[in-house]
Amino acid sequence: MPANDHPDTASPHATGPATTDSAEADSAAATATPDRRGRAWLVLLLAGAFEVGYALAVGGSEGFTVASWSAVAVVFFLLTLFALSVALRTIDVGVGYAVWAGTGAVGAAALGPVFFDETLTLAKACWLAVIITGLVWLKLADRPSEPDTASRP
């Protein structure tokens, strides 16, 4: 594994076995402006919201036996993966997946009691707080070399 365990090394992208494919994606990510990165995060949160819609629709479909909710579930399945794919053009896949799964879990746990016979226990609420803390932390940590490029004349 090309372990890059030194935080903020000068050229983190130089360590990977870059194919043409990933070199292209890397340069796109490396040159991402704060604007572009901000938009990517919005799309990623949208993907999480679609994931919640998918989870609720699957719940409503009762094992894909109710046709209307099954159709809604398929639409949300396509939407969430599309939005995830758009966001991952800019955001690293490890961070993107965690945020996607995290927002989906928070939304499903928060809305479950609204739509279904679920309860939001104190334990669940505490875990939601842990997830949200991690999500905010990741948002703040996800600015690779941007301060450098921004301050460069």
């Binding site: 090309p2 890059n4 990977g16 076995p17 994606a25 896949v93 940590a141 690779p144």
Partner: peptide
Amino acid sequence: SVLFGQSWN
């Protein structure tokens, strides 16, 4: 990290 060479800290 291995396939895409994405950095992590």
